[in-house]
Design a binder for these strands. Structure first.
Lengths: 138, 138
DNA sequence: TATAATATTGCAAATTTGTCGCAATAATTG
DNA sequence: CAATTATTGCGACAAATTTGCAATATTATA
């Protein structure tokens, strides 16, 4: 099942329909990079209202379609693991460059153990690194 | 050196002094749990101005005294590793309960490898789990 | 496919969150 | 203690986010 279909079915299952604005927002996120609210509103202001962007993101987040990732002061929005390959970020504190990397080997077992220890049913996790990239490390 | 002294010396070294408001904010964070801006302003509004809370947090953050952690929708403020034991969180998606846990064994090596791979000088990292706690998992 | 019922959106207004300038107060220096 | 510098409160401002409601689009039903 492709992304589009998965989107539709996720919405449908929860009583929502895929409208043009929702489609537009989803598309805007498909580029893959985390986007700030400001970027999203600028990109989409000709297509949909600011308020609708917020409302749609709230829905998408509740349905697990998108997630917020905190990066320093601001947060950004990106597609969740269900709609893009699971990954994490390493962010440069100086220039802001963001690199995505795959789930490191060995992490899963560690997290499973933690969830078990605290009797949690683990749903998702985030791992964010910060530091200075090769250009900025001096 | 106790926390108090470490706070004073961190401030001093950077040309700041420990004032009553700064003390109050620091104390408010000592409870250990991450606090939202809203919680902090409510707690401290009789003691210090809203603007000063923001200014003080900006300073504390710049000096590495506090960090922001993203938890679901909002971010929260808590003391950094330098002023409280390094730890991570597992948060219940339903009731909001937050449990802190220590750095899991094996993580450090994994992160070092990643930083090395992308030629980053690693400064800090965050690991957040979400799921359903024992009370809410049903 | 037309109609009724429901969901979604845009728009404007309200609220909340975060920032700024500046005069008053507190802390530090000599 | 006086002078200098740092910090705060206050009010105004700006940006971000939320809300109510009427207009529009979508879905369900006949």
């Amino acid at each position: 099942m492709n992304l589009q279909d998965r989107l539709v079915s996720t919405l449908k299952q929860n009583g929502y329909s895929l409208t043009k604005p929702r489609q537009a927002l989803f598309s805007a996120l498909q580029a893959g990079k985390p986007r700030s609210m400001r970027e999203l509103t600028l990109d989409l202001e000709s297509v949909m209202d600011r308020a609708s962007i917020y409302r749609t993101i709230a829905i998408f987040e509740r349905l697990g379609i998108v997630v917020r990732v905190q990066q320093g002061w601001k947060y950004k929005i990106e597609l969740s693991d269900k709609f893009s390959p699971h990954h994490h970020h390493i962010t440069c504190l100086r220039c802001g460059k963001i690199i995505s990397f795959d789930e490191p080997a060995g992490i899963e077992k560690i997290l499973d153990d933690i969830a078990l220890q605290y009797e949690f049913v683990q749903k998702n996790h985030s791992l964010e690194l910060e530091g200075y990239c090769s250009n900025c490390k001096n």
